[in-house]
Design a protein around this nucleic acid. Structure first.
Lengths: 220, 220
DNA sequence: CCCTTTCTGTGTATAAATTACATAGAAATA
DNA sequence: TATTTCTATGTAATTTATACACAGAAAGGG
């Protein structure tokens, strides 16, 4: 095989190599607000800054597999649905070395995943979306982009992953929508629209402890 | 700085590194059909296969900058609007070494860019979207994904880049839409919808050589 | 136990957006 | 100049989205 030039599709054996990182916006829904899982770094750079959980892609693993591993190591979160958002390649986005990051988002039920800071993380916490501080690296940007993508997906389909319990009322679902989209919705129109999507099944059970005795639904 | 573990956001100085490639779906519109620019490889792997133009990300350049360089070297195409599509990381997607690819798409006027095969490319050609052969690597998949994204973008906004000349008739625009979306549209409804977007300006000029004397428009 | 509160569940009228569809006029061609 | 083939345009019908009010169910307090 002769010398390989820049036009060749990335086959050059001496082509420039670079660290690839995966970062994940883990969204949760708790106390009736949309939250995001952040971790606090105990090392430089950006020591004591909050950032999105993430880490380097591993040899022999795909990006989604690497994300799963990172999240599993950190939070016990496993087997969650991930959605790829974008790829970030600014040269100076990491102060020490060149890192290209691929971001994903995931939707989980916080109560299913008790979180404990491990490794080089000094703290881990769910933040309300409105209360997110200045993050390390360019992670505010990643979060903004992920939230936009989540909103788009929610508007177009009925995708809310594991943000709700298995059984939920239509009101709970509506509040989830309102929180993510950041706008209020009409109750009757929302019910009409959601039900005619034909993706929910009524269980004929009523939610206890709530006035009016609302019906519980589950995903089809 | 102490030893750095997997949870750290890609700061480890000895973290796994990997070649990153950029691949671009360059769409053009010619002879009234949507086309895609493909190049034929003259080296292994996938020698004599058609693939999307692409190449390794360069040290010190972002991904969009790297794409620009690759395309410029190959086709003279410069300063085009790029849209990021997705990132591909299957371990075995390149038969020789691990390569993670980030794909983009671009929309150009083929007549503006005479293409000549250079470097390790033995041929270069515009293919009709319906006539694309089996491509090297996983590039059929990349192409499919880019086309989906283009369709989505076209449906939602009025984005057709440089696929048309500066001045064009509404009929030409409609045919572009029909070609990309793969469906026929009603002429009157299309005109109504497009014009009320308020993104086109009439020029009060008529296109010569065409019966009916259709008005020429340009982008606002 | 009953009264009050607060939630659920439902329908209809209106407005807005989308779709279907036909004819008269302008430019080219023979 | 007659014919062909294209452009330009409006309206009615349908579908979709929005606004809105009241009766019944469960909980809580006295």
């Amino acid at each position: 095989m002769s010398k390989i030039g820049p036009l060749d599709t990335a086959v050059s054996l001496d082509s420039y190599e670079c660290t690839i990182a995966v970062e994940c916006c883990v969204f949760g829904f708790q106390d009736n607000v949309l939250k995001i899982l952040l971790v606090k770094r105990s090392i430089e750079p950006f020591k004591d800054y909050w950032v999105l959980p993430g880490g380097a892609m591993n040899e022999g693993k795909t990006l989604p597999e690497s994300i799963e591993e990172v999240l599993s190591n950190l939070t016990g979160i496993r087997k969650i649905a991930l959605e790829q958002v974008a790829c970030y390649s600014n040269v100076e986005r990491h102060p020490i070395k060149r890192v290209v990051s691929v971001s994903y988002y995931a939707l989980v039920k916080p109560e299913d995943y008790p979180v404990i800071p491990k490794n080089y993380i000094s703290d881990i916490m769910w933040f309300e979306i409105g209360d997110v501080p200045e993050l390390g690296f360019d992670h505010n940007r990643l979060l903004t982009d992920s939230l936009s993508k989540l909103r788009d997906n929610l508007r177009q389909n009925l995708v809310f992953g594991e943000l709700l319990p298995d059984l939920f009322t239509l009101k709970e679902l509506q509040e989830l929508y309102e929180n993510i989209l950041g706008e209020r919705l009409d109750r009757r129109n929302f019910r009409k629209k959601i039900l005619q999507m034909d993706l929910l099944v009524p269980t004929n059970e009523k939610k206890a402890g709530v006035k009016g005795g609302p019906e519980l639904y589950k995903k089809k």
